[in-house]
Design a protein around this nucleic acid. Structure first.
Lengths: 248, 248
DNA sequence: CGAACCCTTGACAGAAATCAACTAAGGTGG
DNA sequence: CCACCTTAGTTGATTTCTGTCAAGGGTTCG
């Protein structure tokens, strides 16, 4: 891997507190690989061989069942994914495909497991990471079950805005069809919902989101820290270092 | 706490591998409390002070938002809940209420956190527990997004049957309104769905489920280990020691 | 015995998926 | 540079699914 990426990985919450020697050894056993856009790099059900770290690009995690698909998350640099499968040494629950040409660091799962057994600080980091991931999924489930699709879209827009310092306008980080799938609806339904939301304080023009009346939008979305979280979401520019893509 | 419950707790995957002294100390600082049925023992948003262990009874975890509620899980003896909140020292994401008179062991969250810092085996157990919980929620989310309500009900019936050794008949572990909420539907909708499922291999009489044609039911449910899991579900008799309540 | 509460059923309204057609934008290759 | 193809997005018409409201039967518990 390129040495200039090493600090970025090292500064991830998952790795920043572990012993330096262990970190170096772990990365010494890892592979740095570049994938073209649109490649299915993980197929759900396959054995979990590597912890993945997105160094560059973007990766979509999605589930498949009986011919249907749904987007579960989009991972952006620099962050890890499918940690739990690696730890449990069980098959991946989700498939992964690159949304753009992406550079991925592959950390062998067995090395991961031996490392947290001998490095307490790392073990604690893994615990914190998993607990955070768990809570993120629980919040997501609450959103799916407690809010209807219009409310989900509205809160998504508010969340994204908040991540960008309450920007009144920003660009969607993903295409709409993907956003629709992430929010548990069809593209057609999202399209119609966007139109309906114009009278509720938000206007979408192509990829640009413009919040025209934050109060009215919040009235509909009823943002809740126990659903929308204080943290970045699984879909958006969110990870450790939010790569701000704002423009007012 | 009653000494006869101690081994049951000790044998939980979360505690069985830790140092005995640490275990004893942890439990020495804990409280054993009995709650009447229907009591809200945890309110979402409250600070996470204790890891809870259900020793007896049953506890429902549920989310609230804007006047609506949804059941997230039902916890039965002997198992723990809200581990992640305790670890992150953050507010509970879910509320909890007793479904019956229940005896709960309360382990102070700060003691929990200090313990896994000095007991590697315990840390590893926590990691495995969190990873398993995470995967359970992901599977649940996939079920919600990929299956419609009829398919969710059908797979739920098959899952329950499988947990009871593929029993062709069994009793529902919870009342129907709760099951409906867990499966993301209204009681009315569940009621109608049950009727519709009679022509798809399953008949429900009161609390009794009778699988009349397993093949036909499976055809509809399309069971998938990456959704239905090899493990017990969050709703049912499932935990470490499945308290079988079968009758053919 | 009465009061809750669960469950069911029916009628209806609203939400969402589906099917189909059309537009627009982006990329490819001649 | 343009014709062409592919794909995202939109829109309309329609069907299916789901929630809501209301009422009634049955059960449990005080």
């Amino acid at each position: 891997m390129r040495p200039e990426d090493l600090p970025e990985v090292r500064h991830l919450p998952l790795f920043r507190d572990m012993d330096k020697n262990n970190f170096d050894e772990l990365l010494g056993r890892s592979y740095d690989q570049t994938f073209p856009a649109g490649l299915e790099m993980i197929r759900q059900g396959d054995p979990a061989d590597f912890l993945h770290v997105v160094l560059d690009g973007a990766v979509e995690l999605y589930g498949k069942w009986g011919g249907r698909e749904c987007t579960m998350a989009v991972i952006r640099p620099v962050s890890t994914f499918i940690l739990a499968a690696c730890i449990k040494d069980l098959p991946y629950l989700m498939s992964a495909r690159t949304l753009e040409r992406s550079r991925i660091l592959l950390i062998p799962a067995p090395d991961l497991r031996t490392t947290f057994r001998r490095d307490t600080e790392f073990a604690v980091s893994v615990i914190n990471e998993l607990a955070a991931c768990y809570r993120a999924v629980v919040r997501n489930t609450k959103g799916l079950k407690l809010r209807n699709s219009r409310e989900r879209v509205a809160s998504y827009f508010l969340r994204q805005s908040r991540l960008l310092d309450d920007a009144p306008s920003y660009m969607l980080p993903v295409e709409k069809r993907l956003l629709a799938s992430y929010l548990g609806m069809t593209p057609e339904n999202l399209s119609r919902t966007l139109k309906a939301l114009e009278s509720h304080g938000v206007k979408v023009n192509g990829m640009r989101v413009i919040i025209t009346d934050r109060v009215k939008l919040a009235e509909l979305a009823q943002p809740d820290i126990l659903i929308d979280g204080p943290d970045p979401d699984a879909l958006g520019s969110g990870s450790s270092l939010p790569p701000v893509q704002r423009r007012a």
